[in-house]
Amino acid sequence: MSRRKAREMAVQALFQLDFNSGVTSEEALAAVLSERGEDINDSTKLYAKALVDGTYQNLAAIDGYISELSREWKLDRMAGVDRNIARMAIFEMKYSQERLQPGVAINEAVELAKTFGTEDSSRFINGILGSIVKNKELS
């Protein structure tokens, strides 16, 4: 299983869910899989689904963490990709059954931001997640 690939697919699906209210998580993931056009093993697909579903189920609490500590940037003003990468990282640190250590989650999120975001996304993600870890108990 490639967790990095699963995270990439999950971020793409979360982005779709964020901007298309009529789409289900299953439809969003199916669209990502069809766009990728590569053979992805079942365990990677299952992990991506767990990330999407878990992030989406805990969205209100996750957005609360982000909003509380990013006073300079309102959640709806953040770039959609950045917002969803941060959401997923917080899910992995706080809500996932296999919680990631903050350093690992932040590193993975920064790498996703370099792949999918703008030139400034990786610094932005690192700053937001670093603030959350520094100022909040994520356990």
Results as ranks from 00 to 15, higher is better:
A50V: 07
L75Q: 08
E26S: 09
T44D: 03
D53C: 10
E38P: 01
S34F: 12
M93L: 05
A105F: 03
D120C: 01
T118D: 14
Q57F: 12
P102W: 09
S122F: 05
S121W: 05
K114H: 11
S34V: 12
S131A: 08
R4A: 12
N84V: 08
A31T: 15
K49R: 11
E35T: 08
G22V: 14
A28F: 10
L14A: 07
A79W: 06
L75V: 12
N84M: 13
V104C: 02
D82W: 01
S34N: 14
F19A: 09
K49C: 03
A89Y: 06
R36E: 15
Q12W: 03
G22A: 12
Y47C: 00
V32F: 07
L17S: 02
L17Q: 10
M9I: 06
A79V: 11
D63T: 05
N135S: 09
F19V: 10
I40P: 03
V133L: 02
Q12D: 09
M93I: 00
R123C: 06
L29T: 01
D76Y: 10
A48M: 06
V133F: 09
A105T: 02
K114L: 08
M88G: 00
A61Y: 13
E8G: 01
T44K: 05
A6N: 06
I125C: 00
L46T: 11
V11A: 04
K5C: 04
Y56S: 14
A105H: 04
T55W: 03
R123A: 15
N58R: 11
G22K: 13
I106G: 00
I62A: 03
W73Y: 14
K114N: 12
D18L: 11
W73P: 00
P102V: 04
R4I: 09
S70A: 08
E137A: 10
E72R: 12
E26I: 11
G22D: 15
A48W: 04
L59H: 05
L129R: 00
S121F: 03
Q12M: 12
S121Q: 01
Q12P: 02
E137I: 11
Q57N: 13
F19E: 12
S25L: 09
R36P: 02
A10V: 09
D39Y: 04
D63L: 08
K74I: 00
L75G: 02
T115I: 14
K45H: 03
A50L: 10
G80L: 08
I40Y: 06
Y56N: 13
Q97T: 11
L129W: 07
M1H: 12
N41R: 06
